[in-house]
């Protein structure tokens, strides 16, 4: 069955992020100047404006910074998913990212609880980094 949900908007800037995700690696830009790991993707480091970066691999361990539960399907493909959780994940290495928390009862989610990364291969070309309750960081 084809995947009907909206896919990430992949452009010239964030293409490497999604290419690594397809290989099941969570990598973000680490500034070669000051060491700051930034997200989302940008040409320069927002702290020191250095142009030099490397794509550093993250552990995938983190904690729930905030979360919400969708009870309304804003898109027909989400009709069977509600209620579903969207969360901000505080990653162990510093940056925060939006994602889903899956495979648990929605009422069990709490701010501060540890989560672990997995990849959801939604199409042949796109894998989404998502999170489950876990050991955390």
């Amino acid at each position: 069955m084809s995947y009907e949900k909206p896919l990430p908007i992949i452009d010239e800037d964030n293409a490497p992020y999604w290419e690594y995700a397809r290989e099941h690696q969570l990598r973000m830009q680490k500034c070669a100047g000051c060491g700051h790991i930034r997200f989302p993707v940008s040409l320069v480091c927002p702290r020191c404006h250095s142009l030099e970066t490397e794509w550093t691999k993250l552990s995938g361990k983190g904690k729930v910074y905030s979360y919400v539960i969708y009870h309304q399907a804003y898109h027909p493909a989400y009709k069977d998913d509600i209620p579903y959780a969207v969360a901000i994940i505080q990653l162990k290495e510093g940056p925060r990212m939006e994602s889903n928390i899956t495979d648990c009862h929605m009422e069990d989610i709490e701010i501060g609880m540890p989560v672990e990364l997995y990849f959801d291969d939604v199409t042949g070309d796109v894998s989404l980094p998502k999170f489950r309750l876990g050991e955390g960081g």
Partner: peptide, 21 residues
């Protein structure tokens, strides 16, 4: 601004995340 792939529809997503915080 972002997150469509996780079902983050509408301005409500970000504000609800803020409100939970």
């Amino acid at each position: 601004n972002g997150g469509i792939e996780y079902g983050m529809f509408g301005a409500v997503a970000g504000y609800a995340l803020a409100a939970r915080r």
